[in-house]
């Protein structure tokens, strides 16, 4: 059962979703073994100007779809939309949390309402690493 409905008020806080990252989520394997990347190897990261290996972008982003699907279920699978920006990198073992709140509702077609949300991902140090907007569809009753 989706959490968000057409009656959900503007300003409603979305349920926060967290994930503890670890280096095993970043490993890239080929037939000849593991490939060193900026997400697993200090030297590979340093060659690109980084002070340390960083989390994979899609893992940082991954907590947002989890949060949005909890909120919209079918209305996220079909009709989910988003626009996000990575502001800074996160460490490969950071605890990250997706958060957000409802910012608006726009009729879509004859029967649906698009519910817009401000969303972000922050680390346990309180740094916002991804910010943006996402939306899903609900029935207009």
């Amino acid at each position: 059962m989706a959490i968000i409905t057409c009656d959900t008020p503007i300003g409603y806080e979305l349920p926060a979703i967290s994930q503890k990252l670890n280096v095993n989520l970043n490993r890239v394997m080929t037939a000849s073994g593991e490939v060193d990347t900026i997400h697993t190897d200090s030297t590979a990261a340093a060659r690109e100007g980084l002070t340390r290996p960083i989390a994979v972008g899609s893992r940082l982003f991954g907590v947002i779809p989890r949060m949005m699907m909890l909120c919209f279920e079918e209305g996220w699978i079909v009709g989910g939309k988003g626009s996000v920006v990575t502001r800074r990198s996160a460490g490969i073992d950071d605890l990250i949390t997706a958060k957000g709140y409802v910012t608006g509702k726009i009729p879509e077609g004859d029967t649906k309402l698009r519910v817009e949300c401000e969303v972000w991902v922050e680390t346990d140090k309180g740094e916002k690493v991804i910010v943006g907007q996402c939306s899903g569809l609900v029935d207009r009753v």
Partner: peptide, 10 residues
Amino acid sequence: VSYKLDFEYL
């Protein structure tokens, strides 16, 4: 590094 992502699930 990845910077922006815009997407739509249809």
